[in-house]
Amino acid sequence: MEDKLIIAGREFNSRFILGSGKFDLDLINAAVKNAGAEIITLAVRRVNSFTGNILDHIPEGVTLLPNTSGARNAEEAVKIAKLAREAGCGDFIKIEVIHDSKYLLPDNYETAKACEMLAKDGFIPMPYMYPDLYAARDMKNAGAAAVMPLAAPIGSNQGLSTKQFIRILIEEIDLPIIVDAGIGKPSQACEAMEMGASAIMANTAIATAGNIVQMAEAFKNAIIAGRLAYLAGTGRVLDKASASSPLTGFIAD
């Protein structure tokens, strides 16, 4: 059965979006391959010509998803998105608007404004957001191609702390729901996928793992397992036992 992740009409086989931050450049290629990732996020910053270019380390055919990190309001996010497009990154943009340096929580209001401006300018906006139902509706109305609710603060590896609110978005918002930020372990990625998330975005959990390339593969497998479980439909939960073996035909003493 074909089971593709579709974002703005683009089809992806992988449901694992890999972040490229905090990596040794030499490990990115192997991490992307072992993750089976078809989308990778990048940041836009001042560059000099002497350090290695991250684009040289990303396998061919992987879709680049630049973020607007560093933006503190909608206008700055739009400017960063336009710079990313001018630097040859295509139209996908992960909108990130943050002006809290302690918890790095996104400003949903400014994010929705940026989403509207960028959608009108031909971008494919994927807003990183706090999982709030009304804000998610605003993002959709503003032209979001997917929403990226956070599981926990960026880089914290705390896991799926907003689980019940992400569940509401999965039920109510007719867009791909990509759980982004805070996922620390493959089991947490699997849990989000089991409840119907469309994809997982992870970075720090892999970049800070003991063996980065192995952890990329562990996440890949967990996300596949969670997706399959969601499609299969998980079994029911009972208060009491229900024998798995027949209760007839016991062997006589």
Partner: peptide
């Protein structure tokens, strides 16, 4: 102001210009 690529060869850096050259780096 963002320059388009076809403006690079005809835009002289003037005294007092503030120029930013940006590109991609690792990020989540």
């Amino acid at each position: 102001e963002i320059l388009s690529k076809n403006e690079y060869d005809c835009t002289k850096i003037q005294p007092d210009d503030e120029v930013e050259i940006v590109g991609f780096v690792g990020g989540g």
